[in-house]
Design a protein around this nucleic acid. Structure first.
Length: 564
DNA sequence: CATGTCACG
DNA sequence: ACGTACGTGACATGA
């Protein structure tokens, strides 16, 4: 949102590229063409949808150009997305791609700008050196496109994922990022004060119980207090062998001792304050007055997006205190926040892929799926399922999506492993199609080294044939999870395209402002509220016809919390 | 920069 | 006997 253009590099044929410096600034820098003059001359071409462009991560270029008032159009190809569609599990930076596919060792950005404290801005790089770096950048992109795109084009389904999903989504994401989200910084500041007071109080109490002051934020110091001074039992150890002080451990110790409870409360509030109520206001862009996240489209191996700087996909929701943070995500005067999320999307996908009759029936008949599962597993009528039974069934259903083990289920439910194994056996007896899906997926993963989403996105499993047992088992669980998580990612990307397409065609002012894996969030002027509420669910459920119905829940409010 | 922890779907 | 539920990103600490 704030980067300024220093120069442009372009290539129209292999091994030929140019660099146009426009804003290099250092003692003795040569005279350069004026930036606005250059952009003025290039504008018609840059903004023309009829003139196709190829780049590496053009979402970024589009932002920089838009910072100068140029709206990039004609994004035909993106080598970042090509690499991601072909090999989501590998690195996609240009240096790696050039080595892997072109056997070329490129000039690295760090080599040009330096790194750490002595790093200089690109505007201070000598024009000659900048030319070598930047022109090579354009040339490598050209070669990568000529190498990677044919590999996608030879597979119909990969081509659809790339051309019909990833490329259009990148264009939409740039707009979503630019739209930003309005945040009530005053409300967050008040929450920070309140949290600060509560933290001071908890800290004071902790010092009293511990008999001495210590840094509550330091797992190391905390471990010394708990397990050294106070001689509390070590419940489990961390990967490096130190006694763990994580939530599970503290919860267990809290049954018998006072200090762990204080620490659990402290940690919960400290997280909210440092990550959210203190940080988010600092992330507001001074120019737009809004928070602009960045979506990474080639990070998550399953096809999901990732959000960073700030991450808007992990804003608290599970606790009452946490939800207050969502109240600070607001609509401007005259508008509302609209949230629409897919209901039970991954379980529906499991029902579709596995074709299990009972699971499909549960969704077809619009049942509460956890209640239906409880009914089957516990052998009672749906109406007679207890709250406890439904809770168990919900944990089992989530476990299935993750490729659960008896151990994992036991731990999650706090029951014996034998008992957990028993529930799993009963589940599979009732849903044989699901077991067959899991077996089939495991076998396929071993044979091919990859699994696929419903729409043909390919998910590679590097360790599926590892001689290391635990690693192989991990890859098998990932293989089971990936088609469900990945298909859900495909669906919501298609939904983003459908929704933005509708908003554009209807010349609406409503804006997509966030994507949270199974949820789209929009900022909607009140005049468009009825239309959006009416059309949004159908647009989202209509992107694909699975063997089970898709359902979308829509909420409206003055803020994100109310809309949920 | 690694580690531990914890926020989300 | 081991080590175990999938996918992410950010923060604080401490080397």
């Amino acid at each position: 949102m704030r980067a300024r253009l220093v120069g442009l590099s372009l290539s129209v044929s292999p091994f030929e590229a140019c660099y146009v410096p426009v804003a290099h600034e250092y003692a003795g820098a040569p005279d350069q063409l004026d930036r606005d003059h250059v952009l003025g001359r290039l504008r018609a071409w840059l903004e023309s949808p009829k003139h196709p462009k190829v780049g590496q991560n053009l979402k970024y270029d589009a932002h920089v150009l838009e910072n100068h008032g140029v709206k990039l159009a004609g994004i035909a190809h993106d080598t970042l997305l090509q690499s991601y569609v072909l090999e989501a599990h590998r690195s996609h930076d240009m240096d790696s791609l050039a080595e892997r596919h072109l056997h070329r060792r490129t000039i690295r950005y760090d080599e040009v700008t330096g790194k750490g404290a002595s790093r200089i801005g690109f505007e201070q790089v000598a024009v000659e050196r900048a030319t070598e770096y930047a022109a090579e950048d354009a040339d490598v992109t050209m070669h990568l496109h000529r190498t990677l795109y044919p590999r996608i084009a030879e597979d119909d389904r990969l081509l659809e994922i790339y051309r019909d999903i990833e490329v259009p989504v990148s264009v939409i994401l740039q707009r979503v990022e630019r739209n930003g989200v309005l945040v009530d910084t005053g409300a967050l500041a008040r929450q920070s004060d309140e949290l600060g007071r509560k933290l001071m109080e908890l800290e004071k109490q902790a010092y009293e119980v511990a008999g001495q002051p210590f840094n509550l934020n330091s797992p190391k110091q905390l471990g010394e207090i708990l397990f050294g001074n106070l001689k509390l039992p070590v419940v489990k150890k961390t990967a490096s062998g130190a006694p763990s002080t994580d939530e599970e451990v503290l919860a267990k110790l809290a049954e018998d001792y006072p200090l762990p409870r204080l620490l659990l409360d402290f940690r919960g509030l400290a997280k909210l304050k440092s990550t959210y109520t203190d940080k988010l206001p600092q992330m507001v862009d001074p120019k737009t007055g809004r928070v602009h996240t960045s979506y990474s489209q080639a990070v998550a191996v399953t096809g999901r997006l990732a959000s960073s700087d700030p991450n808007l996909q992990n804003i608290p929701v599970r606790t009452t205190e946490g939800r207050r943070i969502r109240e600070a995500f607001v609509a401007p005067p005259g508008a509302k926040i609209v949230s629409a999320d897919y209901s039970q999307i991954e379980l529906r996908i499991m029902a579709h892929i596995s074709a299990d009759p009972s699971l499909r029936r549960a969704f077809a008949e619009g049942m509460d799926v956890h209640r239906a599962t409880a009914s089957e597993v516990f052998g009672v009528a749906p109406a007679d399922v207890s709250a406890e039974q439904r809770r168990y069934a919900k944990v089992i259903n989530f476990g299935l999506i993750y490729g659960m083990s008896a151990f994992g289920l036991a731990q999650n439910l706090g029951i014996e492993r034998e008992a957990a194994k028993n529930w799993i056996d009963r589940y599979f007896a009732r849903y044989p199609g699901v077991r067959e899906y899991m077996d089939r997926t495991r076998a396929l993963a071993h044979e091919q080294g990859y699994v696929e989403t419903v729409f043909g996105r390919r998910l590679w499993l590097a360790e599926i044939n590892s001689p290391n047992g635990p690693r192989r088992a991990g890859a098998e669980r990932a293989a089971i999870n990936a088609p469900m998580q990945g298909t859900a990612a495909d669906l919501i990307k298609m939904a983003m395209i459908a929704v933005q397409g509708w908003l554009d065609r209807e010349r609406m002012s409503s804006k997509l402002i966030m994507q949270v894996h199974d949820e789209l969030v929009l900022e909607v002027p009140e005049g468009e509220l009825d239309a959006v509420r009416e059309r949004l669910p159908g647009l989202m459920t209509g992107v694909a016809k699975l063997d089970v119905p898709l359902e979308v829940e829509v909420g409206v409010g003055a803020n994100w919390e109310q809309a949920h």
